[in-house]
């Protein structure tokens, strides 16, 4: 059972990673939600003991490699939002989907701010529209991610 549990979590993160790499036409690209962050937030909320900062860190490093950013940039953003999530996860679990989505928007904005800060320190001007559009789309997608992953988790009987 233990192997299946980790396999399902790993598979969902892999799908998130593929969605992050998938080529999109240029104008749509800035609207791409941070799939990996959404999926990590879900697993951390559901199973905080299994999916915590360490997994966020390693996934972040993989995202950094796949996106050609500094090693540690996405990792830093993910570690920090997973930490915040770990503090609040009990309260968030009992919220309605809409309230959750707003909370997730906050987390995604924080991660975006961290990524843009690092870009700024590196001397690359960040496009302003990209700043809120991706977290906003992420917020709209959250309920679907949540319901889908919850069903998968229940079917696979992971706890």
């Amino acid at each position: 059972m233990l192997n299946l549990r980790y396999f399902v979590i790993f598979l969902s993160l892999l799908v998130g990673l593929i969605l992050m790499i998938l080529p999109l036409p240029d104008p749509v690209q800035i609207y791409r939600p941070n799939w990996v962050a959404l999926i990590l937030i879900y697993w951390n909320m559901a199973l905080p003991r299994r999916v915590g900062p360490w997994i966020a860190f390693f996934i972040g490093i993989v995202v950094d490699t796949s996106q050609g950013t500094l090693l540690g940039q996405h990792a830093l953003a993910l570690v920090i939002i997973i930490y915040i999530n770990q503090i609040f996860h009990q309260r968030i679990r009992v919220m309605s989907l809409v309230q959750q989505a707003i909370y997730v928007f906050g987390l995604l904005v924080i991660s975006q701010v961290i990524i843009v800060w690092v870009e700024g320190i590196m001397g690359r001007p960040p496009p302003l529209l990209a700043f809120f559009s991706a977290p906003f789309i992420g917020m709209l997608i959250w309920p679907w991610v949540f319901v889908l992953l919850r069903d998968i988790r229940r079917k696979a009987n992971i706890s």
Binding site: P53, F57, G72, I80, Y83
Partner: peptide, 15 residues
């Protein structure tokens, strides 16, 4: 908290 602090430091060092 300690683990997160350590990882944040690690990320900054890596970058």
């Amino acid at each position: 908290s300690i683990r997160t602090l350590f990882l944040v430091g690690l990320c900054i060092a890596l970058m």
